[in-house]
Design a protein around this nucleic acid. Structure first.
Lengths: 126, 126
DNA sequence: ATAGGTGCAAATGTTTTGCTGTCAA
DNA sequence: TTGACAGCAAAACATTTGCACCTAT
C-alpha cells in the first residue's frame, strides 16, 4: 500500500505550480529548495510513480523528451524551435481521431498525443 | 561541402528497407552486416545528419524515443503497449490543424506529429 | 512492527566528442 | 591535395538500481 511521503508531496507540488514543463533535473532543483537533501533518485522514482497513477505526464513529440507536466488532462503541446519553450495548446482536442484510427489499424486505442513545432510570437518579433 | 560516404549510403539504405522503425543500435547491427567495422559513433553522426536534411526522421510520442523512420513523408505512428511494435498509420493526416493551432497560439507552425498508443490486433487475439 | 520510501553511490544505457588517420571529390 | 568523414575510445549525460537506514501507518 502506498504511503504519502513528504518528498512525493513536494515533487507533485512543484509540478502543479510550474508552468514551464520542467525536466527531472529542474524538478530536482526546485524540490531541493524545500527539502535540501532530497536525492535525484527519489525525484526519478516519484516522477515515474506519479506518471503510473496518472497524476503527471511526460511530454513527448520531437525533441521534448524528458519534460513533465503536472496537468493530467489530455492536451497538446507546442515547442518553439528557437527558444525551446513548451506551451500548452488550449481548447483544441481531437476526440474522434481515436475511433478513426482504431477502424483503420485494428488497434484498440488507449491514448494519443499531438505535438507542434514552430516559432513563438516572441521569437518572431525579433 | 558534403560527401557521399559508403557508410552513409548503407545507413540510409538500412532505414529505407527496414519497416520496423529501428533504434540507432539496431541500425548499427544491420549496417555491420555490410560494413563489419562500422562504428556506432558513425551511425549516430549520420542519423543526425540525415535527420537534419530531412531524409529520415526520429519518431517520438510517449515511449517511442530513439527510433527512426526512413520514410521522410509526414505520417503518424501507433505503438502497441504490449509487444512494443510501432506501425505507420496510413491514410490519415490532419493538414488543417496547423492553421487552427497557428491561429490559437500565435506561433508560426513548421511541423506537427501525432502518436497513438494501444493494443495491436495480434496482441488482442491472445 | 513492518512494508514502503529515502539518500547515497555505483551501475547502466545512450549519445556525443576529441583525436588521428582515411578517402571521396 | 584537402576537407569532410570514419573508427576508436573516452567523456558526458540521463536514468536506474542495490543497499542500508528511516518513517508513515
Amino acid at each position: 500500500m502506498r504511503r504519502k511521503s513528504r518528498q512525493r508531496k513536494v515533487i507533485l507540488d512543484v509540478l502543479k505550480r510550474t508552468k514551464t514543463h520542467p525536466s527531472a533535473e529542474c524538478v530536482y532543483r526546485e524540490a531541493k529548495k524545500v527539502i535540501p537533501n532530497i536525492s535525484l533518485g527519489t525525484v526519478y522514482r516519484n516522477l515515474k510513480l506519479l506518471q503510473s497513477v496518472g497524476e503527471v505526464s511526460e511530454i513527448s513529440c520531437e525533441g521534448d523528451e524528458g519534460r513533465f507536466d503536472g496537468n493530467p488532462h489530455l492536451h497538446y503541446h507546442i515547442t518553439c524551435r528557437q527558444c525551446g519553450k513548451i506551451k500548452d495548446v488550449e481548447d483544441i482536442l481531437f476526440y474522434n481521431i481515436e475511433k478513426k484510427v482504431a477502424a483503420v489499424t485494428g488497434f484498440k486505442i488507449v491514448n494519443h498525443c499531438v505535438g507542434f513545432q514552430g516559432i513563438c510570437p516572441e521569437c518572431l518579433n525579433k
